[in-house]
Design a protein around this nucleic acid. Structure first.
Length: 571
RNA sequence: GAUUCCGUAGCUCAGCUGGUAGAGCAAUACACUUUUAAUGUAUGGGCCCUGGGUUCGAAUCCCAGCGGGAUCACCA
């Protein structure tokens, strides 16, 4: 839709703008409006006759001659407001009601009302308006759904494309959407509070990085002009937080917007939010206790209960959560024991389980594939999976009892990973070797391995990092579980979309083919339709389109006589 | 990336085996002083996603494209 082509209703609203100004009413006044009440509050604490001042969008109008009901929607919800002609216009001049209220207000306009609270005959809490003010005009009609007496919503604004592209409209007309984002914010503040109460510090680390470290993913690349160097949008903030632990903070955390230049689907958006926290002198066992207490706290803060529904599943975030090693999990679901097996034995075992494998896969990758294929999906209730193979975890400390494993856990909910934690690797020599191993894997063709070595990070470790445990939580995934939304787009205000095309609609001027037909016709003024069609040399489709277009522009007309069609110019 | 479905009025959607577009809501006008999906009467409103093809004739059939949804794959 081009900005130059307006719908009927949009034109009408622009005209009412002029009428308002002519009536001496500024449709976009600058003055503050002294709001002292909110819709839901008035309904829950009903006080007959209380004088209130509230503001919001006009969402419905039921005009019945000299009295009308309307609905006002503010940040908390909706409330009915009652307009009575003689209340609003006590004098002889009734234009404020008859003209301004009835004709110059449109649905979607922001208005302020002053009046008194009362209950209607049917018992609905309403505000009887004594005075109203237009606060801001709405020039574009909202996609307004209606709700009937049974609570069924009609004409709901549901098209996902429109909802995501025009989230502002989605939020106005779909209250349940707003609810999701309120919960999202509650989740963040609950988590902050939990960390702050524990004495940890919220920090900020670079988003533009010269080495995209801390994870393996394709980064977005940009360029810094004055330094003339490439910079990468961060794919993780892990290595920076650990530098701060080196620097002497006990606990640091950051809600990190990360960027990964990879596929998009209902669980992946190019930018997403991770929370990462690092606490010194702790290990991953401590972190498991901490994590389950954290999630219990967050679920309560968001939903008022630790239980949550996700699709067909009922889940409960009440601590403690089940813990199982990756080895025991694979043993349980496949009967195969991965302990002490060679790479070839693992590959054969995977093949027997019909899991596709190839030669680039090392031991760690093979185990991960088996787990992902056969075990992961079984964990519906929050479950810690512990002790991952070393090869998959280049930033994680080797397991204290088994050099093939690492002290790592992931928290699975409904078969999906929502948290990942380590006893952090703090041996700089081991860390250097692991990075070098990753580079080799990357060269071998493993696109999940990291290609960069962050030497500055190694230098930091050489100064010494205390034993530390770190935890990462996928905030978008977590809020999906807490609000029962199967798609990440529903929990992001502005999910990534292909850019919309504006202004490509054809204007009122004739296009090439239309002009061609018009020129031929203009020589005679009136012709047999088939003769003109033949002269034009256009294909059937092109001809049809051109004629329809010309008729649409109102420059020609087609008349049907007894047997022939005559086409002529309109003068 | 693969498969599949969808794209018609501001919104939600009909539109048959091809014959020049329909409804409800929203809008406009009139009536109506406690309605609540208010009601009644009347009216206006369409590049039927784009391009090509088949046809006397395409919203409808065919091909391609664009945009979107779903499922799968990929993305620890």
């Amino acid at each position: 839709m081009s900005f130059t082509e307006l719908s009927d209703q949009e034109i009408q609203r622009r005209e009412t703008l002029d009428k308002l100004r002519a009536a001496g009413i500024n449709p976009f006044p600058a003055d503050l409006y002294p709001v002292d009440a909110y819709s839901s509050e008035l309904k829950s604490n009903f006080e007959e006759g209380k004088t209130v001042c509230l503001a919001g969008r006009l969402m419905s109008q039921r005009i019945m001659g000299k009295a009308s009901f309307a609905e006002l929607q503010d940040s908390q919800g909706r409330i009915q407001v009652y307009f009575n002609r003689d209340e609003i216009c006590p004098s002889e001049d009734k234009t404020l009601y008859n003209e301004v209220f009835k004709k110059l207000l449109d649905l979607g306009d922001f208005i302020g009302v002053k009046g008194t609270v009362f209950k209607t005959q049917v018992g609905e809490v309403s505000v009887s308006v004594k005075e109203f003010t237009l606060l801001s005009k709405s020039l574009k009609p909202l996609p307004l759904p209606k709700t009937d007496a049974e609570g069924n919503v009609h004409d709901a604004f549901t098209d996902p494309e429109l909802r995501y592209r025009q989230r502002y409209a989605d939020l106005v007309v779909n209250p349940h959407v707003k609810e999701v984002f309120i919960k999202r914010t509650k989740l963040f503040s609950a988590m902050r509070q939990f960390f702050n109460d524990a004495g940890y510090m919220e920090v900020e680390t670079p988003i533009l990085q010269s080495i995209p470290g801390g994870a393996a993913a394709r980064p977005f690349i940009t360029h810094h002009n004055s330094l003339d160097i490439p910079l990468y949008m961060r794919i993780a903030n892990e290595l920076y937080l650990k530098r701060l632990i080196v620097g002497g903070f006990d606990g640091v955390y950051e809600f990190s917007k990360n960027f990964r230049n990879e596929g998009m689907d209902r669980t992946h958006n190019p930018e997403f939010t991770a929370m990462e926290i690092y606490v010194s002198y702790k290990d991953y066992n401590w972190m498991m206790d901490f994590t389950e207490r954290l999630l219990e706290h967050c679920a309560l803060a968001v939903n008022g209960t630790t239980s949550a529904t996700f699709g067909v599943h009922k889940i409960d975030f009440k601590a403690p959560y089940k813990r199982i090693t990756m080895r025991d999990s694979i043993l349980e679901f496949t009967g195969f024991d991965i302990a002490g097996k060679s790479e070839e034995e693992l590959r054969q075992a995977a093949l027997k389980m019909n899991i596709p494998v190839d030669d680039t896969m090392g031991k760690g990758k093979l185990i991960d594939e088996i787990f992902g294929e056969k075990c992961e999906g079984n964990y519906i209730q929050p479950t810690f999976i512990t002790d991952y193979p070393k090869e998959m975890s280049p930033l994680c400390k080797e397991h204290r009892d088994n050099p093939e494993l690492t002290e790592r856990f992931e928290l699975m909910v409904c078969g999906k990973e929502i948290a990942n934690a380590y006893s952090e690797l703090n041996d700089p020599i081991d860390q250097r070797e692991r990075f070098e191993e990753q580079v080799k894997l990357a060269e071998k063709g493993d696109d999940e391995a990291g290609q960069f070595i962050d030497y500055d990070f190694l230098r930091a470790l050489e100064y010494g990092m205390p034993p530390t445990s770190g935890l990462g939580i996928g905030m978008d995934r977590l809020i999906m579980f807490l609000t029962n939304n199967p798609s990440i787009q529903e929990v992001l205000f502005f999910p990534q979309m292909k850019p919309e095309k504006f202004g490509e609609k054809k204007g009122p001027e004739l296009d090439e083919q239309e002009q061609h037909v018009y020129n031929l016709l203009s020589k005679k003024g009136s012709m047999d339709l088939n003769v003109l069609k033949e002269q034009s040399g256009l294909s059937n489709k092109q001809w049809d389109k051109a004629v329809k277009g010309l008729r649409g522009h109102g420059v020609i007309e087609v008349e049907k006589n007894d047997k022939q069609l005559t086409i002529s110019m309109v003068h």
